[in-house]
């Protein structure tokens, strides 16, 4: 039987006060698609990290800008695309230092990226700074019987 794909979208002003709304949106998607509680929590957090990065770095906390979250669900996975038109970055330049090194250096950068990669099955970027940046994350769904 062909898999039925469903798409849901949320567009919010680029302000961290909207992160809770984004998490609620993603949580509903995860729960409805049949994920367990811990996987829903991972999905929620990965998307929060991606959107926080956009709000604080790509848009420099400019709340007149917009962050778009698009969720595509089919029988095998949940795909989340976080889209912005901010300044973007080079994903290869983001270091993944050890936690103790971050503490010693008084830096917390890179933690969000580490969480996204740990919590999702796939993380991809497509950057066209100032035009369109898209972060795509995929979480596979548990196989259903039948």
């Amino acid at each position: 039987m062909a898999s039925i794909e469903k798409t849901f979208s949320l567009h919010v002003p680029s302000s961290t006060e909207n992160l809770a709304m984004i998490r609620d949106f993603v949580k509903s998607i995860g729960t409805q698609s049949g994920m367990g509680d811990l996987d829903v929590a991972k999905l929620e957090m990965a998307v929060d990290e991606a959107c926080s990065n956009v709000m604080e770095h790509a848009y420099d906390s400019d709340s007149t800008k917009e962050v778009s979250i698009r969720a595509t669900v089919d029988e095998s996975s949940v795909q989340i695309d976080v889209i912005d038109t901010g300044k973007g970055f080079d994903p290869a330049s983001v270091e993944q230092p050890k936690l103790q090194d971050l503490i010693t250096a008084k830096r917390t950068g890179g933690l969000g990226m580490r969480l996204m990669k740990s919590f999702m099955d796939e993380v991809h970027y497509e950057m066209l700074p100032g035009v369109k940046n898209e972060l795509r994350m995929v979480k596979k769904l548990p196989k259903r019987d039948g």
């Binding site: 926080s52 971050l102 008084k106 917390t108």
Partner: peptide, 16 residues
Amino acid sequence: TYISSAGLGVFMSFID
């Protein structure tokens, strides 16, 4: 009920 890297960063920035 929830913590993200921003919250974890507070623990990290003061512990030393």
